[in-house]
Amino acid sequence: MAIEVRIPTILRPYTKDQKTVAAEGTTLALIISDLDANFAGMGERLLEDGALRRFINIYINDEDVRFLGGLEAPIKDGDSITILPAVAGG
């Protein structure tokens, strides 16, 4: 089952400028490892020490994955994933 993943501008250099890509996996962790396998370096941009980066937001459909179990969040057929860098600073 292929899940649609929307890629933000800042990560499109990894996806040859594709705005959406397909990834496989039944949890967010598996989706991210699949992304990293196909687009080398992407995993590093999303994870730090094995955890989701604080200033990268990932959503399953309309919900922030932090409220869905983080990396263990289950993914089912028909879900779509959106990655957005936080807009933040000091």
Binding site: Y59, D62, D64, T82, L84, A86, A88, G89, G90
Partner: peptide
């Protein structure tokens, strides 16, 4: 006074 951040929900709605 030293940090700003868009709420993640607002951010998704904005995009």
């Amino acid at each position: 006074p030293t940090f700003y951040e868009f709420d993640p929900k607002d951010l998704l709605a904005l995009y």
